[in-house]
Amino acid sequence: MSKIHVTTSVNGDAVEFLCDPRETLLDVLRDRLGLTGAKEGCGTGDCGACTITLDGRVVCSCLVLGAEAEGREVGTIEGIANGEELHPLQRKFIEHAALQCGICTPGILVATKALLEKNPDPTETEVRYWLAGNLCRCTGYDKIIRAVMDTAAELRSESKELS
């Protein structure tokens, strides 16, 4: 099978790769680009472990082809921190002990970051339903929701200070 040449951007860096026409973006990220933060939990779009953003939109990378990344902007968990400095969301997840085995964490963080960019003041119900597609088998979700609400509050007060 001939490979496809794809030019794209991942976490702001220009990236080129060759992939099979039927290869998922998840496999490209993990196997070709060495970005193993996105995980495969189901491969069918039902668990959210593979969550990334494509042009700022939350998608399951297991349902996107590598070829579809052409000319788009891909955002992954690896791009959330600013060098050594954690994003507030990452800090709050640690503070609230919002993770156990941690394998759902990358997907949940990517999905939540996108939510807070769209809606800086979500209600708890909005958070719950936004994250309903991100399964976590360990935590029971309580601490995750607390961490998200707390981050949202912090980000709001920061942006108030700035304005």
Binding site: G37, A81, I94
Partner: peptide, 23 residues
């Protein structure tokens, strides 16, 4: 003490390695 999980920082940055992530 309620200290955070030892690998919490690795988890939130997506760098904690599971078997399938080992190069």
């Amino acid at each position: 003490k309620s200290l955070a999980h030892d690998a919490a920082r690795l988890h939130v940055t997506g760098t904690a390695r599971y078997v399938d992530d080992i190069p």
